[in-house]
């Protein structure tokens, strides 16, 4: 297109200044959707199947190899730990049915995990809400940061279990104490990451908010939270990981029906196979929790990467 014709095009759309707004769009500047060619269905299925295959086969092979080595290493009947075959024999009920109920203390590991998860969700949920609010305060206000940051930096190094006796003393009950331990464990990375995210909000966005005269609440919801979302979700992911670490340890000490207490109980009654199964449960649940938070974060932060 020559400069002259481009100019005419603009002049056309300029038209009469009083024209209806629709006339502002020149008729010859039509937008045609671009549909990239797609491979046939069969080919696409085959390609995605190859992807799955490449992702799943190597870990399964490695797992089988590890189980094999483990079996060989502990096959001696006098060995201190059970081999996989003995774990299967001893704890078949736990592995096959996660949700059986044979009595108040004889229930499936799935149900125990549920109990632990309830505590984690309570404690972590509280930590997420309080952590994001405190993080926003610390990120936004220089004075809040000066006052609170040193305290946070000291408190966050306290190991989760060190909080347990004092929370037992305060709440006089195992369940709220365990929830508090989760809360106090998970909150620090959430606060710190939120604060960093909010400190890194580009000045441009603040200028936009200033020109629009957004009030504090609007600024919090429309600008702060979306702009800091990638940082916030990093904090939440670290937080959920720490929560899951802490709940198992806390339940060992507080008792009840959680997965942590199950391990302690199994140890006291020398059911080593049950412990092995419980460890696998804990690992898988921790992995799933991490994936869930990461997935939510991925969905929630779509498009937040500025260009």
């Amino acid at each position: 297109m020559t400069a002259q014709s481009a100019h005419n095009l603009v002049a056309d759309s300029l038209g009469s200044p009083a024209a209806a707004p629709a006339a502002a769009r020149s008729p010859d500047a039509q937008v045609i959707a671009f549909n990239p060619p797609r491979a046939p269905l069969g080919e696409r299925v085959w390609i995605s199947a190859q992807g799955w295959f490449a992702a799943i086969v190597p870990p399964i092979l490695v797992l089988l190899a590890l189980l094999f080595i483990w079996e060989l290493a502990f096959s001696d009947p006098k060995s201190s730990l059970p081999p996989p075959s003995k774990v299967w024999q001893d704890s078949k009920d736990l592995i096959v049915d996660p949700f059986f109920v044979n009595g108040p203390q004889d229930i499936g590991l799935g149900l125990r995990v549920m109990t632990s998860l309830q505590r984690v969700i309570m404690g972590f949920g509280l930590a997420a809400i309080v952590g994001v609010l405190l993080g926003a305060l610390v990120g936004q206000s220089v004075w809040a940061m000066r006052g609170l940051d040193p305290i946070f930096q000291v408190l966050r190094t306290v190991p989760p279990l060190a909080w347990l006796p004092i929370s037992l003393a305060a709440f006089r009950d195992a369940n709220p104490s365990a929830i508090f331990v989760i809360f106090i464990t998970a909150i620090w990375p959430i606060i710190i990451n939120t604060a960093v995210g909010i400190r890194n909000i580009p000045q441009d966005y603040r200028n936009v908010a200033a020109v629009l005269r957004l009030n504090h609440l609007e600024f919090f919801w429309r600008i702060m939270i979306p702009a800091a979302a990638p940082y916030i979700f990093t904090g939440l992911r670290i937080g959920i990981g720490l929560s899951w670490l802490a709940i198992v340890a806390a339940e060992m000490l507080t008792g009840g029906v959680g997965i942590g207490f199950f391990i302690w109980d199994a140890w006291n009654s020398s059911r080593l196979s049950d412990i092995v199964v419980a460890l696998v449960y804990i690992g898988v649940v921790g992995f799933v929790l991490d994936r869930i938070v990461a997935g939510i974060g991925h969905l929630a932060t779509r498009g937040t990467q500025a260009t």
């Binding site: 200028n207 020109v211 932060t301």
Partner: peptide
């Protein structure tokens, strides 16, 4: 808003 600014780097909210 009575003095709206068009910023050099557009400053659209990316989300």
């Amino acid at each position: 808003p009575d003095r709206a600014v068009v910023f050099q780097n557009h400053s659209l909210l990316p989300w």
